[in-house]
Simulated scan of single mutants.
Amino acid sequence: MTPAPALSCLLLCIGLLAAGAGQAQIADPDPATAARAAAERLGRAMATLDQAEKARDRVKALTETVRAFENGLQAMREGLRQVTIREQALSRDLAIREAEIAQLLGVLQTMGKAPAPALLLHPAGPTGSARSGMILSDVTPALNARADVLRAKLEEMRMLRQLQTNAAETLRDGLTGVQEARSALSQAVADRDPLPRRFTEDPIRTALLITSTETLEGFASGLAEIAVNESPGSLPDISHRKGSLPLPVQGRVLRRAGEADAAGIRRPGIVVATRPRALVSTPAAATIRYRGPLLDYGNVMILEPQSGLLLVVAGLDVVYGDTGQVLPAGSPIGLMGGADPEIGAILQQTGEGAGTDRSETLYIEVREDNKPVDPETWFRIR
């Protein structure tokens, strides 16, 4: 190859690579930092499990511990998802530029075979040769900069893959920890001191009400009939918290009020998609008006935060508490169904860039003076 064509080919390759270097200067989010932070959150959750076992108020401490594990596991999944997306982007970028890099190396190898003096010659004479030398001196820093970018990307790829390898052990410990915390919480609920009661449930009246009821509205209308020796008064008014109550469970709104489901059925409440075994808690201090199976809603918990206001939570697998008890805000009221996914399934989901396994659903309905209202007027929907 003569000096002029070799130089032209070199400039073509440098132009392509320099364009890629310019794109690489755009700041990408740091998924590695997010993944490490998630691992640290899980580590802190595991450290608090022993402290919760020894806490005086074990139910409250273990509830917070389960929440910490759920938040840590969610953050870990999200961190892994970001790691996977970043690694895939790097792989695609390197694959796209593989031909350009190979072309550049071919040109450099061809030029390296030519005698050094010949490279400085130019068909246009001394002036052309001087210009060629100036161009080569300008090209060298661009080559070095691009090489540095490629080295950084390869090192990032290596680091991200190491993070994915280490994540399996971190997730395994986290899943074991949250399972132990749930078991300890269930035992602590069973062993806790009796909670205040506003009334005693009449089981016969409850059974009659259930058998004679065809709608949730009808059942809610008859709730007062199942209460015996009810104390007068009500819990403090929470109307000032309207629109700011936290959702009872960690999840995402799947269907809003009035939206039809797959069968075309419309309900006045919202449906929240949650992960298996997710903890459900009361968003405010409330009296348990009913707990147990009801109609086609599965296990139902009906809470009364204040007179005339009912929160209906349906679809639980495990329920905590007894009808008539008064629960403090944030108290656990149950667990969702399903089973925790295996490590392999979680890694496969994040490997596909999904990072979500919300297979359970919780139905939440709000009733004011026994009329349904949009739950989004009460709850803080993110």
Score class of each variant (00 low, 15 high):
Ala184Glu: 01
Tyr297Ala: 06
Cys9Gly: 05
Asp322Asn: 15
Pro29Gly: 08
Thr140Ala: 11
Val228Asn: 09
Arg36Asn: 08
Thr165Asp: 05
Thr84Ser: 13
Arg58Met: 06
Thr140Trp: 11
Ala4Gly: 10
Pro31Leu: 02
Val59Thr: 13
Arg58Trp: 08
Thr282Cys: 07
Arg161Glu: 15
Gly177Pro: 09
Asp193Thr: 09
Val319Lys: 07
Gln162Glu: 12
Leu136Asn: 05
Arg367Thr: 02
Val326Gly: 00
Ile210Leu: 11
Pro194Cys: 08
Ala220Trp: 01
Met46Pro: 00
Glu53Arg: 14
Arg36Glu: 12
Arg192Asp: 08
His240Ile: 07
Thr140Glu: 12
Asp202Ala: 03
Val373Asn: 04
Arg266Gly: 02
Glu201Tyr: 00
Ala227Asn: 00
Val271Asn: 09
Pro328Trp: 04
Gln23Lys: 06
Ile265Tyr: 15
Pro123Trp: 15
Asp57Ser: 08
Ala257Asn: 15
Ala6Asn: 09
Glu259Asp: 08
Ala345Lys: 10
Arg161Cys: 09
Ser8Tyr: 10
Phe379Gln: 00
Ala284Glu: 15
Ala354Pro: 00
Ala24Tyr: 03
Leu347His: 04
Arg255Pro: 11
Glu100Asp: 15
Gly106Leu: 09
Asp138Trp: 12
Arg241Ile: 01
His240Trp: 05
Thr200His: 13
Asp317Gln: 11
Gly243His: 10
Ser8Ala: 15
Arg151Ile: 08
Leu17Tyr: 04
Thr65Val: 12
Leu254Tyr: 14
Asp340Tyr: 03
Ile238Lys: 10
Met157Asn: 14
Trp378Val: 06
Ser183Tyr: 03
Val366Ser: 01
Leu209Arg: 05
Ala37Asn: 14
Ile381Asn: 03
Ser359Ala: 11
Ser281Glu: 11
Ala257Trp: 07
Gly133Trp: 06
Pro31Glu: 01
Leu90Phe: 11
Glu155Phe: 00
Leu294Ile: 02
Leu309Ala: 07
Leu80Gln: 14
Val189Phe: 14
Ala114Glu: 06
Glu40Asp: 11
Gly233Tyr: 00
Lys113Asn: 08
Asp28Tyr: 04
Asn370Arg: 14
Ile135Cys: 04
Ser244Thr: 15
Arg289Glu: 14
Ala24Phe: 08
Leu216His: 01
Ser331Pro: 04
Ser183Pro: 01
Asp317Leu: 05
Leu120Met: 14
